[in-house]
Design a protein around this nucleic acid. Sequence first.
DNA 1: CTGTTAGCGCCTTCAG
DNA 2: CTGAAGGCGCTAACAG
Lengths: 343, 343
Amino acid sequence: MATIDDVAKSAGVSKSTVSNVFSQKRPISKEISERVLEAARELNYKPNYWARSLANKETRIIGLNMEGDKVKFGQFRMTLLNGVLKECYNQGYRLLVNTLPKHFTNRLENWSSDPVDGEILLDPMVRDPRIEERVAGGIPIVVIGRPPESHESTVSYVSSDNVGAGRLVTEYLIGLGHRNILFLNAPEYRTVSHERFDGYRKALEMAELPVESSLVVYRDKVFGSSEEYGYIMAKRLLSENPSITAIITDTDKVACGVYQAAEELKLVIPRDLSVFAFSLETSYGTQLQPPVSSMRLNGELLGSEAAKMLLNLCASKTPIIKRVIIPWELIHRESCGPVKVVQ
Amino acid sequence: MATIDDVAKSAGVSKSTVSNVFSQKRPISKEISERVLEAARELNYKPNYWARSLANKETRIIGLNMEGDKVKFGQFRMTLLNGVLKECYNQGYRLLVNTLPKHFTNRLENWSSDPVDGEILLDPMVRDPRIEERVAGGIPIVVIGRPPESHESTVSYVSSDNVGAGRLVTEYLIGLGHRNILFLNAPEYRTVSHERFDGYRKALEMAELPVESSLVVYRDKVFGSSEEYGYIMAKRLLSENPSITAIITDTDKVACGVYQAAEELKLVIPRDLSVFAFSLETSYGTQLQPPVSSMRLNGELLGSEAAKMLLNLCASKTPIIKRVIIPWELIHRESCGPVKVVQ
DNA sequence: CTGTTAGCGCCTTCAG
DNA sequence: CTGAAGGCGCTAACAG
């Protein structure tokens, strides 16, 4: 690969002239400029990205950091990704998907700074070392979802109103006459599960209903898949506690497990059991019989807003903490109905 | 941000010692090593990724390059992405999604090498400058899909058997009695549309049926969306030529437009019209009434195989051209049926 | 096992 | 408008 020196020599000019022909940072006479370009073309020269980044101290790359080792996109993350990409596209940035497993980054020889100007963090956790590291290193970040309380006022983020969502759903089910609503929540270490629980709790309190701790379950690591989580917990809890008439799940995959459990227990949805899923990760949501009611989260907007904020942060260097809440919408399908009247 | 020099000074050793403590490229005594690590921790030092890349001539980043300016993931691309990510994860590589619009890269000041060790190219075109550039620059690439003929034997690729798929689908429809099968193909500049057409043609020839050029349409740029393409072309051609009893489409989005046209023309699917879609990009495929028959393409395997090949290429430096064909599966749903018997 | 000296390829002063 | 010299932060080759 030809370097700037080769081109300079070949065109009979100095390195800095070549550099400026490309960077356009200072005017170069048309003749010389063309001579340089011609030489570059012949040598198949392109400025080296890393060398340029090193000197410029900027990469024009932003990172997308997904929590955990499972780096896998579902429906929701995909729309989110599309939003981020759209904004990258608009502003001439590239996107780096961070996929390094911990057992890799933990090794000393792989320990290094990240090759990005800033990062978008997904799925914030109640204790999130990712945030602390980046704050310490002065790397601009934007979180998608609510950051842990310790950083809520120091970190920019874009999120849905998860408390409101949890509350609305619960109120909706209460309105249908449900009194024992099982909540198959996301893992406890994620902030979102607490937000949704807060909403759930508020709705129950407003309705003067008790909050049974046995009805609130957080996903545990023991479950190999979301379906398994939904299936096992639904089967167990519905058997133990037949008064449960509605289940709120984290995703449609969990709901899928719930459906299976319901079928085995001869419970008909929505006649005997109402089911609601917060987010749709697959096409299960609409394929299930009956299709499961859910939230529409507008991932694309979450993504593009996050990217916009991050790129502003990268550019301005006067870090302005912002918070953006993206509205959701409750989608009524056919999985929730009035509670069965006991005869 | 602290540099290697700061750490060296603070620990009272030389730069190269610090370097080697981190890179582990040569043994450093335990005492010194710990002293260095201690100093690094205090200064919050991390090796600079770009500087390291520059010296090492490797980034441990691979690129995912999508043709065109539309950088957007649908269902199929997402599974493909997941496959790529899985392999990146296994081998400690990061993934860079290339999203730079042409009007950006065309500007001289943005012209530069790509910050990756190698690249996966999606949606190869009949004339594909991306391939030529990278071959000229000596950047390892793997194409997903069949490369243009000019490079078929010089470039590694992983693909589905699109000719076979086109053929099988067409034979299937012929077997159902269809004789006038409209093919709403992908854009002509993409190699995949030619492969599928080849299969379509072969099937017709085997059945000794004529290949009507008016029944083979390539998507044109004038269409703003896939749905529009399907809708407009189906409406026009079904009106002009009522003998058409089956339509093969590129994706479920195109099929969605076809469904709408059929409805307006009072054609019932599959009674009056059979519809088949090659790939499923959205949840339309299964949500449409009736659900549309399609190919299951195994995007995850395509992606992971491509990544595996690329990482091999990056490592070995003795470029071995490989070709991998990933099998597909025909999924029968309810959109194809026997041709209506004329009474 | 550790230190010294050159680069990697580009950009950025500062002279001219 | 152009050239020369030095630096970005790290690694590599060669001494010791």
